[in-house]
Amino acid sequence: MASTTARAGRTAGPATGMDTARTWAVLAAAVLQAVAGSLGGSGTFGESQRVLSDRYPSLVTPATVAFSVWGLIYLALLVYAVYQSLPGQRSRPVHRATGWLFVATAALNAGWIVVFSQELLGTAQLLIVALLVTLAVVLHRLAAFPAEGVADRALLHGPLAFYTGWVPLATVAGFSVTLTYWGAPLGPVTAAALLGAGVLAAGVATRRTTATLPYAATAAWALVWIAVESATTGTVPVTVVAAIGVVAVVVAAALRAREGLRAAFG
């Protein structure tokens, strides 16, 4: 059964018109969100994300350096978009199952950037939750198509898992910022409890998702910088939960990686 699924993931005959449309849509979406991310960070659409985060401080916002990971995420997704556009890739069922959903994630991400920059934080939170749900569906579908060698692992499973690993913790941090915006900032204990829910979700996903190591890399990155920032401000409960989260994600990734290449890299 596994070999049959793998062969089905490799080819499905000549590319159709819908395959071509999807291929170009994925390429355009990857470029769109990379450009939106660059412009949004500079404040082109209104206030930059950093300015608004400082205006509405949260106890679970990571240190500023953590957000540099977006450059790597966008680059990885551009590489993925080019890979799925190659002639031998366009008709593969794996891309048919995930391509349009990726377009939706890019639209949600770009929309979040614009809406957040306009200081519409409640709407922005809805968009990032929708992004998280859509990415979860992408990874669920991707798991049905084992990687066909190094190229699939590095250019398909890896980039999508690397992207998804960041989003759960970004959702938690965004919710905390939104609560401050609504006039209900979290105290240290409630902030730690909220982060704990994010850590639990990240740990479970790390243990179960395809391409565990790329997923765990960005999840652990976010938690490390939440721990650093909270330690700097003396928010001990958040620091402790974030540190435990780093250990939990790393251990979950190591256990999953012991199951072989498919578990580790798709």
Rank of each mutant, 00 (worst) to 15 (best):
A170F: 11
A63M: 03
S85Q: 12
H95T: 00
A6H: 04
A147P: 04
V114R: 06
F162G: 09
L77P: 05
G17N: 07
T16A: 03
A81W: 14
V26A: 10
A34I: 03
E148I: 05
R50V: 13
Y56H: 10
A76I: 05
L101C: 09
Y163M: 15
V51C: 00
A6R: 14
D152L: 04
A205S: 11
A136V: 08
P57M: 05
M1A: 13
E148V: 11
A222L: 04
A219Y: 03
V69Q: 10
A217Q: 04
Q118T: 04
T164I: 00
R207V: 02
A227P: 01
A211G: 02
W112D: 06
G183N: 07
V249F: 00
A107S: 07
A110Y: 05
L160T: 12
L186D: 10
A144M: 02
V240K: 02
R258V: 11
V238S: 05
L179H: 07
V199C: 11
A243P: 03
A242R: 01
T134V: 13
G88P: 07
A25F: 08
R207K: 00
L77Q: 15
A34P: 04
Q89V: 05
T4N: 01
F265A: 14
A242E: 05
L121N: 05
G165P: 07
L127K: 13
T212G: 15
P188F: 08
L127G: 10
T44N: 02
A248Y: 01
R90Y: 08
A184C: 00
V82P: 07
G203M: 09
P159R: 08
W70F: 15
P214A: 08
Y163P: 05
R153M: 14
A219F: 05
A110W: 06
Q118M: 14
L132Q: 14
A15S: 13
A151M: 11
Q118P: 00
Q84H: 06
V228M: 01
T190H: 05
L200C: 06
I113Q: 09
V129E: 03
G111K: 10
